[in-house]
Each structure stands twice: as structure tokens, then as C-alpha cells.
Amino acid sequence: MRTAIITDIHANREGLEAVLADLAGRGADRIVCLGDIVGYGPDPVWCVETVAALAAQGAVVLKGNHDAAIATPDSGMNVTARRVIDWTRPLLSADHRAFLDGLPMTHREGDLFFVHASANSPADWIYVTDPARAAGSFAVTDARAIFVGHRHVPDLMSRSFDGRIQRQGFAFAQPVPLIRTRRWLAVVGAAGQPRDGVPKAGYAIFDHDRNELSFHRVACNTARTVGKIRALGLPESLAVRLNWGA
């Protein structure tokens, strides 16, 4: 079985479309979405409806901080993010809002753990930016592999036999065996707002039988998304950011 892991769609229709097309071509059997379906981007309605349809077909969908902010304004958010959430809220129907509000925070499946930001205090939306910040996640769960998003930068860490946590290099589209002598934490890149310097839509595939994880990056029609952001008068910094992938 192969699970596609998607996160941080951020109302970017072109990004999500590119990811869904790519994973269909690679043969993923199911999808886990780590949240942040809305925010930043111009197509919240289409994205919520698409993800809800995926959920109806069996996809696991978790709640991200932007999804949570639709129901409960988040004072911790920066001004730009808050502006777009305030713009998004009235566009969503009651059904859309109920869907976002009803999303679970975490998902456990055998020895795998899925969460939007970090396994420790998931509602505090902690960025797992380095091995030290991954320690909390490893401490609170005994899962062998933890999948998170929120950072918009793909990353991989492992916790060795003696408890040391190290960052591990990887190559895109190259399966990394998540060897069972270690525990692993994978930060999946954003489908809708990459911040790793490459303006492409990110996601990951975990192959359960082969026990291998691969990170993917697909080209998407960024120019179109940027055009919509500008046409709708959303903050220009978001348009620039998409173009640069930063």
C-alpha cells in the first residue's frame, strides 16, 4: 500500500491539482492530508470542496492552524495571514466551516503518526525546524515514523538507537528506506506555498510494504495562482512569495 501525504494546500488550486495529478501517475492508494487547506491562497472554496470529496472517498484529513482560525481567530498569526483568513471566512458556506471545524488534530495508524505541526502540543503549532525541535515529537509518541507539515520546507530526521536525533539528507523522488532500527520524523513540503526556494508543489509518498518514503516536487501553474492573488487584491507579499518559493 502507498499513502500520499499532502499538507499546506493553502487555497492554492493549481498546486493541489498538480499534486493530485502527479500522485495519480505514481500510483498512490490513499491520501493523508496534514491540514492547512485554506489561508494565503485565492481558491479556498475549491480546495475545501476537493479535500472534502477526498475525505468522503476515505482520505484522512487533519486540522491545521489556518483551518482552525476559520472558527476561532488566532491571535498568534501574522497580519498577512490573518487578513486572508478574514477574507476567506465569508466565502465559506456553513458546510465548509463545519467540515474544517470537525477535522481531527492527529491520526495514529499502527506505528505511524500524523499531525499538522508537531506531535507534542499539537495545538501550539510548533515548527519542527531542527533536530532539537523534533525531540518533543519523538518523546510524546512511540510511533516509528511521524509525519508533519506546517513548515513548508521538506526535511527528514532520525532518532538513533541511543536517542540522538540527526537531520538526514535525501534526494527528491528517491525512496529512502525508513530502517526499523531508527525512528523517523518527516516534514512534508507544502502543496500550496513552498518555502524551500523552489516554486514547485511538494508532497510525499510512503510505501508501507517497502517501508520507503519519497519526497516529491511537481511543477505547477504558479503564474496563474499569482494572477488570481493580484486580481483579488490579496496581499502582494503572498504573490511574491509564491513566485520565489520562499
Partner: peptide
């Protein structure tokens, strides 16, 4: 392996 994490690096 050029395309896999180098566990020995550290």
C-alpha cells in the same frame, strides 16, 4: 549511497 541519507556523516 549518493541518493540516501548518510548515517555516518555525524
Amino acid at each position: 549511497h549518493d541518493l540516501l541519507p548518510d548515517l555516518l556523516a555525524e
